[in-house]
Amino acid sequence: MSHHIVEVRNLQHVYADGTAALKDVSFIITHGESVGIIGANGAGKSTLLQHLNGSLEPTGGSIHIGHTPLSKGTLPDIRRTVGMVFQDPDDQLFMPTVFDDVAFGPLNLGFAPADVEERVTEVLELVGAGHLRDKPPYHLSGGEKKRVAIATVLSMSPDILVMDEPTNGLDPFARRQLMKLLCDFKHTRIFTSHDLDMVLELCGRVIVLHEGEVRADGPALEIFGNDKLLAECRLEKPLSMQNCSACGSKKSNVKSPDSSACQGR
């Protein structure tokens, strides 16, 4: 299963205006891992994600997806392997109906119409959006848009799922629904988020970015237990690890009970 590995070596990126967004980033993510990339605003999270499927070109360093170096020639294959879910679903859902949108990727990959039909139906059922298939995207709620956006990527059967702020802007119920969905996936998953409780529940491993560099990389509980590191990187403990705000009783390093249901730890 070597094609599920993501290897980033000494990645650097300088934007056209001279901003060095990534200074030196290296890590290896192996098959089936669920990794949260966290950091303050401007730490370089989104820039890093955009490199993973070749939306941005590195200024220095290299990226290997399953031992294939990312380059112009390998880009089509890599984009099929790495499914990218954007932060704003309005950017991702551009076709007239949900069905067309989910079918967009498979049709580009050259699948037969009958296969596309079957795959779209299957994927929409998987994310619980089967009833939305003929609706135009602007008639959907935020949570529905997000789930459909995930379906558009799943329909291409990626090996690696990359998601930018998946729970951003969702109400608590929709957030919980989405997290449950993401829990059940067997893909290699990479998330960026400021929703640290989500990261704690979904990710066994956390990479902390700070000013364009990897500041820490390790098990989620270990990272979130390190108060000094979190403070230096303008982060804080997930709410579920903080003391009770009403009575002050300690909940140190206690995982929320439903997190044990999660895969990929």
């Binding site: 955009q50 499927n53 939306s55 089509p76 984009r79 099929r80 499914g83 990218m84 954007f86 950017d91 991702q92 551009f94 967009f104 990727g105 580009n108 990959l109 558009t152 990527v153 291409m156």
Partner: peptide
């Protein structure tokens, strides 16, 4: 970018 990411040619 989203279109390219899904194999648009």
């Amino acid at each position: 970018m989203a279109m390219l990411a899904r194999g648009f040619t």
